[in-house]
Design a protein around this nucleic acid. Sequence first.
DNA 1: TGATCGCGCCTTTTT
DNA 2: GGCGCGATCA
Length: 718
Amino acid sequence: MTDMLKGLNPQQQKAVTASDGPVLVLAGPGSGKTRVLTHRVAWLVMERDVPPRQILAVTFTNKAAREMRERLQTLLGHTRAGELTLGTFHATCARILRRDGEAIGISRDYVIFDADDQETLVRQILRDLNIDDKKYRPATVLSAISRAKNDLASPATQTPSSYFDEVVRRVYGPYHERLRASNALDFDDLLGETVRLFHEQPAVLARYQERYRYILVDEFQDTNTAQYALLRQLSARYHNLFVVADEDQSIYLWRGADYRNISRLREDHPDLLTYLLEQNYRSTQNILDAARAVIRHNPNRTEKQLFTRRGEGLKLFVHEAYDQEEEAQFIVDTITELVAARKARPGDCAVMYRTNAQSRAIEDAFVRAGLPYRLVGATRFYARREVKDLLAFMRLAQNPADNASMSRVINVPPRAIGKQTVLVLEEAARSRGEAIWWAVEAVAEGRRDAPAVGSRAQTAVAAFHRLVRGWHDAREQMNASALMSRIVAETGYESYLRDGSEEGEDRWNNIRELHTVAAEYDELSLAEFLSSVALVSDVDGLSEEADAPTLLTLHSAKGLEFPVVFIAGLEEGLLPHSRSLDNPEALAEERRLMYVGVTRARDRLYLTHAFRRSYYGDYEPATPSRFLDDIPAHLTEGNYRRDHRAAARSQTTWTPATPACPPAATRFHTGDRVVHPLFGVGIVLESQPARDEEQVTVIFEKVGFKRILSSFLSLSKE
DNA sequence: TGATCGCGCCTTTTT
DNA sequence: GGCGCGATCA
């Protein structure tokens, strides 16, 4: 055997060197799944003499693809690794459609509508249909449409079982039409239309089957129906499908992923070879035991015997904080201590949470402490107004029919095309099933069928038309960064942004950063640049260089590992999330999410929760997560008192959701001076009735914040 | 036509 | 405690 297999255990080696044909690798966290996938690719090239261009490896994020490419460069060398096709499902499909979509009527110039564009479109349609968009929220309607598309079904063909379904059904048609009028595809279309292309054009499919004779897929448990259909089509001729999966880490059911694709794979391929990887190379035994204790409550799973040779390790630290500020402070303090004691570097640490909203309190604590951090997601670069504006101009240059971009920037910076004029243009275009660009052109050329606008507006529209036409005509000759410079110059966007304010300077700097990104694509087409910008994932931007703690959601943490992990907000309603409490399937997914979080940790794991937490500005008492109780006491240390929690939780479970009794009068009130036998003198911040007495929050002169039962307190005479 | 203010709603998770 | 949206004013 070759050098390449050195450092792999026998199980891993068997999987890597499996014979041709369909292969499933079932593996636990930290078992080297991605490593096996990477080595399989290298083995195919080096030992089986498979030309690299015949290999397609599909990863979950662009970041994972980038890392795999880097590893393969050391194994295979730069040139050969460069010939591999490596990327996400979406990026791969985007490229296939760019090349061959015309066979099913998709123009080369198509643009990808992002979540914002989609939502705006749905809102418009709801309004046109006189449906209240407060009651039927665009995002909710959209996710129903998305689910249908993921399942390769059209809501139009299903019988609605509720009025909501009926709304979805009525929106779907216009949504699809207007997408096409804009010459645009949404995320789901990228997959669905590729499946349709392969279905309707067997010759095209045959070409890709020949091209991609070996297909490898990471995170297979999170594929959806459309993605599975695609794999089936592509592998139908050579059957060389190699997938790695862990059903316990399936956390994307809500967006159409279906871990039953694993059993589907078994049914579709009686000759499927299955390998199991159970040795964990990442975490200590204590962490693994805790993870197992959490996940074992889920029904219908195959128990894996995870083990490690890393030894017991440290206990998990469970910490109850008073509120989210104190929780954040605890996290920052702990990281500071670990770093000071040289037990970890800042970059070794990660803070994970269920919802993006939780990041604020934690960020604030880092800012207060003057410490840098890396934030994944949330205020995403590409979601910024100025960045979206400029991308909209570039999308128009690529595809003037793009209505979302047109509506966005037709009057940015203000160029005297007012609301009324825009409305007339939009209406005229829509009634003809044309893009707004059609109306703009008609007005600019003074055509007879042009919608009627005032003479001032007419001049303005004509000027804007000249701009976009100029960019569109130049797009083949210019690369993305040059085009961008031209757009900035011709629209006066710089002086529009740089109004002398600090914010204006920030925004302008973002534009310069975007220009730098564009310059990296100068070898490729404008279309390639726009596609990849539309398909970036949150973690993609995570830089390896900066030595600072990472803040990210549990979802974004998938596939990553850190020596030190904090999971914050372990409370009922947050993890598990309140939207999942009434649904066993959803609850099982929350549990898997917790499992994913726990198994990201190598050496140190901190689980924190708060006694009270503010939602929408109001503070509410919080109950510790049920998942904390699943972890055996001997694995943990810290100030967590499980009996107390269990009592609190059963109370909240058994009492009606909104207790009718008014808050009882309390003996202590905010501002009272009190004395405690141990802590001395303090001031009452808050007092709440608790069981048969009061839970009083006091700030003591000597020891700071404490929560005290009222029986230990007395009012100070002075 | 554009800027400003205040109201109400909200929160999962993302390619 | 923020954000988008709509109403209101210069």
